[in-house]
Computed example of a mutant assay.
Amino acid sequence: MLALAETFEEVAPVAVAIVAAGGTSVTDHERGPILFRAFAGGYDPTHPLTPAQRDLLRAFVDNDEATGGIAGNVLWFRAAGMPENREGIAALL
């Protein structure tokens, strides 16, 4: 799905739903690649987040306590040049 889409916005509704659905087994194999696709060129603080990027990050923040989605994907967040904790991600929103 991710590789076939030209833009993240094309797959954002499904990608956000996957992250929002949670589950502790959905880590590096799904959430990480979704995050990296949403920020393919890396996070750039000089550019505003798109609505799709905001929705994705909000799903991570909203479900983090139950799923550990941010901590479980810290390497993906780091690779995307983003904060590596819930508070840092929430601050971007």
Results as ranks from 00 to 15, higher is better:
residue 4 L to A: 14
residue 5 A to F: 05
residue 7 T to G: 10
residue 7 T to I: 06
residue 9 E to I: 09
residue 9 E to G: 12
residue 10 E to A: 15
residue 10 E to M: 15
residue 12 A to F: 04
residue 12 A to R: 11
residue 13 P to D: 13
residue 15 A to E: 01
residue 15 A to D: 00
residue 15 A to R: 00
residue 17 A to N: 05
residue 17 A to T: 02
residue 19 V to N: 06
residue 21 A to D: 11
residue 22 G to H: 06
residue 23 G to Q: 12
residue 25 S to V: 13
residue 26 V to I: 11
residue 28 D to N: 10
residue 33 P to L: 02
residue 34 I to W: 14
residue 34 I to F: 14
residue 35 L to F: 08
residue 39 F to S: 09
residue 39 F to P: 15
residue 40 A to G: 15
residue 41 G to R: 15
residue 41 G to S: 11
residue 42 G to V: 07
residue 43 Y to H: 15
residue 44 D to P: 10
residue 44 D to A: 03
residue 45 P to F: 04
residue 48 P to N: 06
residue 51 P to D: 10
residue 51 P to N: 02
residue 51 P to L: 02
residue 52 A to M: 01
residue 54 R to Y: 01
residue 54 R to Q: 13
residue 54 R to E: 05
residue 55 D to G: 09
residue 56 L to W: 13
residue 58 R to F: 00
residue 58 R to C: 00
residue 58 R to P: 03
residue 59 A to R: 04
residue 59 A to G: 02
residue 61 V to R: 10
residue 61 V to F: 09
residue 63 N to L: 01
residue 63 N to E: 06
residue 64 D to Q: 13
residue 64 D to F: 14
residue 65 E to C: 02
residue 67 T to S: 11
residue 71 A to I: 00
residue 72 G to H: 04
residue 73 N to D: 12
residue 73 N to R: 01
residue 75 L to H: 08
residue 76 W to T: 08
residue 76 W to E: 11
residue 76 W to I: 02
residue 77 F to P: 09
residue 77 F to I: 07
residue 77 F to A: 06
residue 78 R to T: 07
residue 80 A to C: 15
residue 80 A to Q: 13
residue 83 P to G: 06
residue 87 E to P: 11
residue 91 A to S: 15
residue 92 L to W: 06
residue 93 L to V: 06
residue 93 L to D: 04
